[in-house]
């Protein structure tokens, strides 16, 4: 009898230890960070991309299918940026994650969008996103909406833990508000600062902090710069005294370095997602580092 009780206790302990944490797969490392903040100890989150990857170009792999197969919830960036996710969700055959099912979360839902094209859209415009610019997470204020979408998804997955998720969400938003106020204070003196960016990744960031994006190294989204385009950009930078080039860490430095060499501008290479550089471990670090870089470049 004693043995039976001990065995039952051990079994109960094992069952408790192996209690179901919510398995979440995210498209980006930023979404993983936010999901971990909102889910806390109740979630185990994996991201299908690393912070140093271009989210347009993630290559689906069988190992990703396997992760989705086991997941309770998937969180995607949406707006056609992570279209590679569709084939993965289909291949995983996990009924919880199909579009419209409780485990499907599109973090972009409710985000006010910029650069929403109107009229006919085709490849002559480059790699254009029909729903609007998908780099919305680069406005830190949008992370409240992203976290809200994740919160709703987690509550669907585990309604009994809603109070824990609400508390975690509240803590995340409070920390964000403090940080956002600090970033806005630091960036206040750079309102109207003209910058050149490599790709059209920064309109949300620019709007939040009052930067003026005067041009892009790419002539059109996704199209590599030609010599004539760089020449025109160089003339514009000289004419308008543009002294900052902001480029994502995964893009080649050749174009920005050429422009910097000809105009004396400073190049700020920024990780756009958590884990995109050694000193960018969290979603908040992304903004700490970009703003540091801009302060240095603008102060030159």
């Amino acid at each position: 009898m004693k043995k039976l009780i001990l065995a039952s206790a051990a079994l109960a302990f094992w069952a408790g230890a192996a209690r179901a944490e919510i398995k979440v797969v995210t498209a980006s490392s930023d979404l993983r960070y936010i999901c971990e903040r909102v889910g806390g100890a109740e979630v185990k989150v994996e991201s299908l991309s690393s912070g140093d990857q271009d989210l347009h170009m993630v290559e689906p792999r069988p190992s990703m299918v396997f992760k989705l197969k086991k997941a309770d919830m998937v969180v995607r960036v949406g707006l056609d940026l992570d279209m590679w996710m569709d084939s993965l969700i289909n291949a995983a055959k996990n009924g919880r994650l199909f579009y419209g099912q409780p485990g499907y979360v599109d973090a972009s839902a409710g985000v006010p969008l910029l650069e929403k094209p109107e009229g006919k859209v085709d490849a002559s415009m480059g790699d254009i996103h029909i729903y609007g610019n998908p780099h919305y997470w680069l406005d830190p204020a949008n992370s409240k909406i992203m976290a809200g979408n994740i919160l709703a998804g987690l509550k669907r997955a585990a309604p009994e833990k809603a109070a824990v998720f609400d508390a975690n969400y509240g803590a995340f938003v409070r920390e964000l508000d403090v940080k956002l106020a600090g970033w806005e204070a630091r960036m206040a003196k750079y309102k109207g600062l003209k910058v050149i960016t490599y790709h059209s990744s920064w309109p949300y960031f620019a709007r939040r902090f009052g930067l003026d994006v005067a041009g892009h190294v790419e002539p059109k989204p996704g199209i590599p710069p030609s010599a004539s385009h760089l020449d025109g950009l160089m003339k514009k930078m000289k004419a308008e005294n543009i002294k900052v080039i902001l480029t994502e860490s995964y893009y080649p430095r050749k174009g920005p370095d050429f422009l910097a060499g000809k105009t004396g501008a400073a190049v700020v290479t920024a990780a756009v997602s958590a884990g995109g550089a050694k000193d960018v471990k969290t979603y908040f670090d992304v903004f700490d580092r970009v703003i540091e870089g801009l302060e240095k470049a603008a102060g030159k």
């Binding site: 579009y99 499907y104 599109d106 839902a109 409710g110 729903y131 998804g153």
Partner: peptide, 9 residues
């Protein structure tokens, strides 16, 4: 309404 976190036209 569809679950929050969904978008699409």
């Amino acid at each position: 309404t569809p679950p929050q976190g969904m978008r699409g036209t």
